[in-house]
Amino acid sequence: MDRAEIFEKLKEILSGAMENSTRLDALNEESDLRYDVGLNSVGLLYIVITIEETMNVSFDGVLFDDFHKVRDVIDYIEAHQ
C-alpha cells in the first residue's frame, strides 16, 4: 500500500473509535492521536490491535507512547508492511 492508501485505511480504522464525522473529515497526517483524535490508552490499544489484525503489520517491541501523530503511525506501517 502507498502512503495515501495507508492513510485511508487508518482513517477507516479510526472511525471505529470516533463518532464525530466532522472530526474524522478533518483528520490529516498532522492530527495528534490524543488531542485531535481523542485516543486514550484503551483507544490506542484498539487501533494497534486492529492494524495488526487487518493490515498484517506487527507492533512487537514498540511502545505505544512513541506514536504522537497520525503521521508517526503511517511512517511505521509504511516501513513495516
Partner: peptide, 13 residues
C-alpha cells in the same frame, strides 16, 4: 455533552 471519543482514563483504565 455527547463525546465522540472515550474518556481520559487512569493506568487501571
Amino acid at each position: 455533552a455527547v463525546r465522540d471519543n472515550d474518556f481520559v482514563r487512569t493506568p487501571n483504565m
